[in-house]
Structure formats: C-alpha cells, structure tokens
Design a protein around this nucleic acid. Structure first.
Lengths: 247, 247
DNA sequence: TCGCTGTATACTGTAGGCAGTCGACGACAA
DNA sequence: TTGTCGTCGACTGCCTACAGTATACAGCGA
C-alpha cells in the first residue's frame, strides 16, 4: 500500500532515482547525447525512440520537452526534436556564463567556510589527482564536476546552485576532451581554491575561480580552433536527416 | 500547402506567437499565476485546466512540464502540479542571482556601446517615467522589464540573456508591488545607467546596475518583512487543497 | 531539360481511455 | 477515546488512435 520505496536506505537523499518513465527516458536520451550516440543536429523521431526504449510516445515527448528546457535539444513545432548543435560562439558564451556563476559561488562559499564542506572538497580533489595520475579521464571529469557542484552548493544560494549545475552539465558535454589537455594544472588550481575558501578569503577565492574557469575556456576555444569541424557546426540540413538507426 | 504563416508581416520577428496548443496553454496558465488567479501552493488539476481552457489533458500536461522547467510550478510525481510557493529565502536568492546576471549584462553592454541600443533604451526609459507620472503601475513594470531585457540582449551573450530573462520573469512575479514603492528613484538610476553604457564605462555601468538591483532587492525584503504572511509562505498543506473552482 | 503541380508517405499534435496509486474517510477493536 | 484497518473516490501516468501537415517524389507541361 505505502509505496515500496525503502524510505532512503542510508544517507543519500540526493540523486532521486527516476520513478516515472519520462524521467528514465530523459536520462536515457541525455546519456545518448552526451556519449555521442546522437550527434548534434540529428533528428529525434518520437516513434523510433519510443520503440528503442520500449515505451509509448507519450513519455518520450515529455522527456524531449524536459531536454528542450535545459537546452539539450531544439523543439521545432511541427518538425520534432533535434539534438542541439552548439556553435562555437554559443559554447564560448556558455563558458563565460559558467565563469560568472561559479566565480560568485566561490566567493559565497568563502563567505562562510565554517559550513564544513572543505573536508569534502579536499577529498574530491584527492580523487581527481589520483584519477589524473592513473590516466583515468572519465573519473577526472566526474571528480571535476563533483567539485564544482559542491562549491556551488556551499555558496548557500540554491537558485544559484541550480542554475550553475545546469550550465555545468552542458559545459561538461562540450569540453570533456579538454580535461585530457590540462589535467595536473587544473587540480593544482583546485587545491589553491580550497585553501582560499577555507581561509575565508572571498577575493582570492573569486580570483582563483575566475582564472581557473577562464583557463578552461581558453583551452577549449584553442582546441576547438585546431579542429573546427569535429563538433559538427550546426549542419542546418534541409533534407530529412538520417535518423537513429542510421547512426 | 506551404503553411499559412505570412513569413513575418512587417519587422517583428520576435515574440513567436504560439502555434501549438501547449504554448497557448503555457501562456494562459502563466498569466493566471502571475495575475494571482492561481495562488502559491495551489493544486493544478489537469482535468480542470483542460476543461477550463477547452483542450484535452495532453497539452495541459506538456504546458505544466514547461512551467516546471522554468520554476513556476512544482511537479510531484504521482501528485500533480502545484503553483510554486517561493519562500522568503528563495526570493532573496533569486534576486541575488538577478543582480549577478544583470550586473554582468550591463558591463558587457558598455563594452560595445556602438551596438546602437542606447536610443531604444532611452525611449523605454521615457515611457517608464511617463508611466510613473501617470501612476500606471502596470505600464511602469512592463517598461522596467523591457529595459532590463534589452540590456541583457545588448550584452551580446545570448546564453546570459536567456538565463537573465527567465530569472527576471520570476522576479517580476515576486516583486511587482515593489514598483509602487520606489518608482521615481528607480528610473533616475536607469537614466544614469544608460549614460554609463553610452559612455562605454564598464565599471560605472556595472556599479550602477549592482546598486540598482540591490536597492530593488532590499526594497522587496523590507516590504515582505512588513507583511510576512501575505505571499503565502509555502503552506505545505497535507490535506488536499481546494482546487481551481474554489478560488 | 527545367519548373510546376499533384499525390503519397511519414511524422507530429491532439484526443480519449484505462490501469495504478495516493489520500481521505468511516468502521471496528483495544 | 484512540489507534488501526479496509474501502472509496479522485487523480495521475501511460497507452492507443486519429487528424492535420510538411516533405519527398513522380508525372506533366512548357
């Protein structure tokens, strides 16, 4: 009667596992986009997705709307959903916004270092370094995301944290390959940042975060400049694109 | 054959009029929320909305999902949609984020004042003053929104503009009554801000915008402190709330 | 050969309906 | 009187089906 949910086993109230189909579908499609299984500009036919995932079109539609809300797909009325194809300009702007949001987060986090998050920050930082040493890019990227997410949380501003997390997810999609580029330097900066937060030095925390995210941004833009065609610059195809099965 | 769309009559490519039902429903519900027809915490039964608007439940569902994505309603799986009830803390945080986003927008707008938006800014500013003189609060609030939206546009960062516009819409919902409070002073500040942008003085533009939005925020918080019960501090009601017809 | 028009196909947008589940209410027992 | 259990009502989540429309292609005429 009373829902089979075990009322949170342990102490992990975060990450509310999807209970509705639309949420599962949302995550499935998002995973496909991030992993590259669905390329930018690709048409997402509801029928195919529904069939592939073994559900009806309804939850697929709703998942697509959610994805559209977060900027992952573009919804053209009467035409359907297309994987969002970020232009170089947009990626740059997104990274700039990330800099803005996370810089403020770092400042706010330093405002009240007694919140006790620095220990967790250091733990994540250690994991990140270890991942780099082990040449485990995926783990390093994950740790990076986790670190930045925790800092936004420690800012104490939930609205800010929510916005930053959305932006960060998209950024992560864009610049995953960058992590390969400047792994060690990045984690050195993280360590300094944590020091500043722990010391309650707002200005320093702000400055380090700004420099850090700007480094990442420049690194991305340089890499992108070297291989300008790789991330598919918005094909804008007129003819009906090949759909899922063709990929 | 070739869609009846008249290919943009005139020169108003903005404001894409809703072509799908879900968009119309989205705007209808949003209007109800902003206007106060639907109070915070109120349960939105899909059936009633569908009947009221003369459509089926499907477009209503999709509109509710869109509203959820922008933070207007809370979607509790298995329970339905509820008008979001912002806490004092959340409103404060939202206003802080707005300060952050718009301050940066102002700085970027001042970075390239040749974009030629200042004339339009002055025009809107004049309208706002006139509205205040005429004691037309609604028009003043509308002009205020328009002005801030244009500044974010002039920043040249579309991602930033998009985020700021979402935040601004919610802020507008929260603090409409504030406009009554400090009308004249607000438009004086706007004029100074436009001067700074036109002069290309980033720091000044940034500072004025920061002060301006912080004033608004403090004004809101003070007003809220005086009447703490009026905006319904998240009822969190256990019993089934009265639905639409009872309002 | 080129452009236009009519038809066919595939997909979206919407409607209606069914099953599952949550919350409320009343009855019964301690 | 209080706590527990069973039943009822209502609503959500999902599925299926239909109508409308844009696109692609073939046939026709110039």
């Amino acid at each position: 009667m009373v829902r089979s949910e075990p009322v949170n086993p342990g102490a992990a109230p975060k990450i509310p596992r999807p209970v509705t189909l639309r949420e599962s579908v949302f995550e499935a499609i998002l995973e496909l986009i991030i992993s590259g299984g669905l390329g930018p500009g690709q048409h997402l036919a509801e029928n195919e997705l529904a069939e592939m995932l073994g559900v009806s079109r309804q939850p697929v539609r709703e998942a697509l709307q959610m994805l559209s809300g977060e900027g992952w797909v573009d919804l053209r009325p009467g035409h359907g959903a297309f994987v969002h194809a970020p232009t170089v300009e947009e990626a740059d702007q997104l990274l700039a916004v990330r800099t803005l949001l996370e810089t403020e987060s770092a400042r706010l986090a330093a405002l009240d270092p007694t919140a006790g998050g620095t220990a967790r920050l250091r733990e994540i930082c250690a994991r990140g370094r270890a991942a780099i040493e082990a040449d485990d890019i995926d783990a390093a990227v994950a740790a990076n995301s986790e670190l930045h997410a925790l800092i936004t949380e420690l800012s104490g501003n939930k609205v800010l944290a929510e916005l930053a997390s959305q932006v960060a997810r998209r950024v992560r999609w864009y610049h995953t390959p960058v992590a390969r580029h400047r792994g060690h330097a990045s984690w050195e900066e993280h360590a300094l940042l944590i020091d500043a937060i722990e010391a309650g030095d707002q200005e320093r925390a702000e400055q380090i975060m700004r420099d850090h995210t700007e480094h990442t941004r420049q690194s991305y833009m340089e890499q992108r400049a070297q291989s300008p065609d790789e991330p598919a610059p918005a094909p804008q195809r007129r003819r009906r694109p090949r759909s899922l099965s063709a990929s």
